[in-house]
Design a protein around this nucleic acid. Structure first.
Length: 488
RNA sequence: GGUGCCGUAGGCAAAUAGGUAAAGCCACAUGACUUUCAAUCAUGUGUUUGCGGGUUCAAAUCCCGUCGGCACCUCCA
């Protein structure tokens, strides 16, 4: 039988890095086995689910290259199927209506907490007589539907990453609610743990791959498979992604949604590569850079770790930089244009293209994230850019202004389109001023780029020259170099 | 409070029928290169697998205990 797996995000927020990593593992597993990867949107929580989150999730998955083969299916479209199955359990006597109110439940939990007991439902309405039910209904109480959980059952499964996992029925919190409160002649809104099983059965899911935070649910769900007379899939619970403090990574930890990573200028291949490394290692563990396709060839849960992995920004940044460094200028330019524009520079993707590609070529090899280009390239775009303190200090040193004046004087008649031409000009200045090359270079850097450090100076100068910015800067720099009245 | 899981250097990790450890990557430090920063290249620091017992000729790998961390215990997913 061919492998069928699914990613089942809930549209109650943007695509989370943890969900995305689970999607990566599912995708990898499906591709490895030539199976199907299914997208199912778990929107049974009508109040919290929002269409814009669904869109964020599907866009994020596609951006990462995790294309699904079937779906998206929406649970909100499948309510009848769930309710039919609830009815089946009711008919079989495996589920029942429970009239306990929320207030009563709260009291129960409070007293359990006071006695330092584990919170659980005491199954008090499991065996109500028709008369008792009628009485509750007469009171105006509406029931939820609970699935019976045998306290004496021992539930065991072989987890693909965790090995044998076993659970006692008594540790499952009592009979579980599978449908929300509704009038007694109806079936209320079916709940997560139940619909997941119905869907996984209905969609023929063969392997349930999800985060470790679902292990306890698995025990409950196994009982549901049994009650529904369905074939049980394989399970694998992957380690969680932890924040730097060691807790499950949540929204509170700052950037956690894929769209945020995208905005920050991570490229999808790098992010996908990094996510697959979080808990999984290729057979050749020295090979850490790979595409999803390459990873799929050998993906295997035998090599998935059990311990949670802390999210490491340094390593993600490094991986991202590696992809950026070797990216072709044309492609990099396409990616960079929105970031330049976001930084407020007026660039025209058409007319400025050659200039922009030259910039991309210059800075690409030292770029870590796309969103760094705003600051990194400011000296190339902003005519009003202020000089840094150390640049000003340098410009005010003896002899520096003279050098810059010489350059400014030579500029109108100089050809400055190639590195060689620029170097020749610098050589001329060296001769005419008698200044050392080191001083000239440093002075030019300070005068031209407003800072003492940055990308290659000669290349930068050429770029500046194309926009006539070098002349402007030189004048300003020379003015800054004049002795100031009252200064020290 | 209960249940479950996990624990190799700052981080990710390798070492899978127990075979005598910390490979590789990130970070960090130093050097080289360069007009500077970054990148790149080279070199280096980090040491006995949370801890304590046990089994064994041999244990990171098995057993017991202990400590710590995390997850779950919703009419959320």
């Amino acid at each position: 039988m061919s492998v069928r797996v699914r990613i089942a995000p809930s549209p109650t927020g943007n695509l989370h890095i943890g969900t995305a990593r689970t999607a990566v593992f599912n995708w990898l597993f499906a591709r490895h086995h030539g199976g199907q990867f299914i997208l199912r949107v778990e929107d049974t929580d009508l109040e919290r689910s929002r269409p814009e989150f669904t869109q964020n999730i599907t866009e994020g998955l596609q951006w990462l290259g995790l294309q699904w083969d079937e779906g998206p299916f929406f649970q909100s479209d499948r309510m009848d199927l769930y309710k039919q199955n609830v009815q089946t359990l009711l008919d079989k006597g495996l589920a029942y209506r429970c009239y306990v109110t929320e207030a009563e439940l709260n009291d129960l939990r409070a007293s359990q907490e006071a006695q330092k007991l584990a919170p659980r439902y005491d199954n008090r309405h499991r065996d109500l007589t028709p008369e008792q039910e009628a009485a509750f209904q007469a009171e105006g109480r509406e029931p939820v539907i609970r699935f019976k959980i045998d306290d004496h059952r021992n539930i065991v499964w072989k987890d693909m990453v965790r090995g044998t996992v076993s659970w006692n029925g008594s540790d499952l919190g009592g009979d579980m609610v599978i449908a929300r409160r509704a009038p007694a002649d109806q079936i209320g809104q079916p709940l997560y743990n139940f619909v997941v099983v119905v869907d996984d059965v209905d969609m023929g899911i063969t392997h349930v791959i999800r985060g470790e935070d679902h292990v306890a649910n698995t025990a409950k769900q196994l009982l549901l498979y049994e009650a529904l007379g369905a074939k049980v899939p394989e399970f694998s619970h992957t380690p969680l992604i932890l924040s730097p403090t060691g807790k499950k990574l949540s929204k509170r930890d700052g950037v956690t949604s894929i769209s945020d990573f995208q905005k920050m200028g991570y490229v999808p291949v790098a992010l996908a590569n990094y996510m697959s490394l979080l808990g999984w290692t290729p057979t050749d563990s020295t090979q850490e850079r790979f595409t999803l396709e390459e990873a799929a060839k050998e993906f295997d849960f035998e090599r998935v770790n059990k311990a949670g992995a802390k999210f490491d920004w340094d390593k993600l940044n490094w991986l991202n930089s590696q992809y950026l460094h070797e990216m072709a200028a044309a492609e990099l330019t396409d990616l960079l244009i929105p970031y330049w524009q976001a930084a407020g520079y007026e660039v025209d993707g058409e007319s400025d293209r050659p200039w922009l590609e030259q910039i991309a070529t210059l800075i690409g090899p030292s770029l870590e994230r796309l969103d760094q280009v705003g600051e990194m390239c400011r000296y190339l775009f902003d005519p009003e850019l202020d000089y840094t303190e150390d640049a000003i200090a340098h410009l005010q040193k003896d002899g520096v202004a003279d050098v810059l004046k010489a350059v400014a004087a030579a500029l109108p008649n100089a050809a400055l389109t190639t590195v060689d031409e620029a170097k020749a000009l610098i050589k001329d200045i060296t001769k005419s001023t008698g200044a050392k090359k080191g001083l000239i270079m440093k002075s030019l850097r300070a005068g031209l780029t407003c800072a003492l450090k940055g990308p290659d100076l000669v290349e930068s100068w050429l770029l500046l020259h194309q926009k006539g910015l070098d002349t402007v800067r030189l004048e300003k720099a020379i003015a800054l170099g004049q002795p100031q009245h009252g200064g020290d």
